[in-house]
Write a protein that binds this DNA or RNA. Sequence first.
DNA 1: CAACAGCGTTCAGTATTTACAACACTTCGA
DNA 2: TCGAAGTGTTGTAAATACTGAACGCTGTTG
Lengths: 182, 182
Amino acid sequence: MDVGERLQAIRKLKGLSQRELAKRAGVTNSTISMIEKNSVSPSISSLRKVLGGIPMSMVEFFSEELQQENPTQIVYKAHELIDISDGAVTMKLVGKAHPSRAIAFLNEIYPPGADTGEEMLTHDGEETGILLEGKLELVVGLETFILEAGDSYYFESTKPHRFRNPYDEPARLISAATPANF
Amino acid sequence: MDVGERLQAIRKLKGLSQRELAKRAGVTNSTISMIEKNSVSPSISSLRKVLGGIPMSMVEFFSEELQQENPTQIVYKAHELIDISDGAVTMKLVGKAHPSRAIAFLNEIYPPGADTGEEMLTHDGEETGILLEGKLELVVGLETFILEAGDSYYFESTKPHRFRNPYDEPARLISAATPANF
DNA sequence: CAACAGCGTTCAGTATTTACAACACTTCGA
DNA sequence: TCGAAGTGTTGTAAATACTGAACGCTGTTG
């Protein structure tokens, strides 16, 4: 990815001149000029300052890097799902062949007694899902929910969370999380 | 966001020493040390080199900046899902109350004859799903697939695609797409 | 045709980052 | 207990990025 080219594209899209952007960002116009011409590789701190004048986050700026490559398998039969089970919980991942997966899409089964563990899970991203069969207990932060067939959820994965099946029937869940940490 | 702290966290997570990472990245160990101590703000090019030794993209590195704000509804009963049906296809979205949804998680029903339309769909992102009941035809690019209960799929949404139920039973699908374009 | 205000580029000097080579500290095995 | 090999840190010199003040150019206004 060409940093200078990208910065220039963004700046022009916003209808800003180098001097205008420089003033908003608190750097000099020559800095902008040299970055755009790729005659320097800016420091993180100065690129931050520059983007602050737009404004735009680092993530957005670099998101163009996500240029996917070429074809892979599209359809997976039930037995082709990759098994990433953890303990008693059965988890099957859709899209194993995918190069850089953005979504972790899982078919999960919690047999009676299954539990993601006493230490709560915490990670980046967001997750969502729907319960197809059985009942399941979901703890998010300080709240505890009882999910029944047909119920769904959506929360930030940064909140501590835990799934548990204290009932006597297996629970079946389809879930999706992003980014995919597998 | 603290660049040094984040780099150190990632490095340790990967079980690498400063020297080990430096060697893989093609920089010196002192560079890593100083970046982690925030005694310098590395240039884009050198941070790229460092992340190349992990390996990790700039986007992933800065993705931690995506710190979401505060609580909303977490669990949704079946009747609380928001209905975004299009034509004959019933689509219900999980997480309507969520501020900035990263995932569009849908419970879809394609009655016999239902179709997303003759002009193929094309948009950014990736999508995935699993068929729970019935049969469904999926066209992606030049390929046509027949999905049966239990089958799943994963593809780039940039490829032209179409879902269709030419059979005489309804098909039920759970799908996830990112980014969420709703 | 000036005079002016805007544009992006360039140059010299200063500030910052980086490599290289040391350092002190810990762990492991002879 | 004494190297040997690992860890992260630090000082100095070289490389690179940044500022501030020019420059040449274009379009506008009197």
